[in-house]
Design a protein around this nucleic acid. Structure first.
Lengths: 85, 85
DNA sequence: ACATAATCCTGACGATCGTGAGGATTATGG
DNA sequence: CCATAATCCTCACGATCGTCAGGATTATGT
């Protein structure tokens, strides 16, 4: 299921949906993923100033893949060995 | 052109590739997007602790779309009105 | 090789983060 | 309706950010 973000804060509700689907509490997923419960709570509510690595950590922990859709013209400037998908 | 991120820092080189494809200097894109040249430089080199909103700001400015790929089970927990793609 | 452009690096500053702990508030189910 | 779970909120603290300014380093083109 692929969803395009239109605002930085759009990521929050998606995180929550996936956690709910996992039948987990903020408490455990936070622990399992390695962030504070406070942090996860703020994220789910759309806090958009979080640090990218922490946020990515949460996404990975929940099994959410991040895909970037970039203009075709950029292809030739990509570092070699860049994976598709 | 879709690329899946495997590390948080993977985003950097992609930003650079798109900027190059635009024939722009860090200087201008930074200005156009509303961040410092220093910030953009660090991002392109894989700085992963940047704030998500600033980073997203750069992606948007460059025309890079962010797509989240989440498990199908999460569908029913999504807030209504969630856009696909 | 040279001159200039473009990028990178460093340090300092104010602003903001993420965490932990504690208490309020809201859901859940018996 | 009540008890408990789950989530949220607030505060203070140390850590880190993003910006600016300046100088170094690396690319580019002639």
């Amino acid at each position: 299921m692929r969803i395009k973000l239109s605002k930085a804060s759009d990521i929050g509700p998606l995180v929550r949906a996936v956690r709910k689907a996992q039948k987990m509490r903020q408490d455990d997923t936070a622990g399992a993923v390695g962030v504070s419960e406070n942090f996860l709570s703020k994220i789910e509510h759309g806090a958009d100033k979080a640090q990218w690595n922490k946020l990515f950590q949460v996404l990975q922990g929940l099994g959410i893949h991040v895909v970037l859709d970039l203009p075709e013209e950029a292809r030739s400037y990509l570092p070699k060995g860049t994976e598709q998908s």
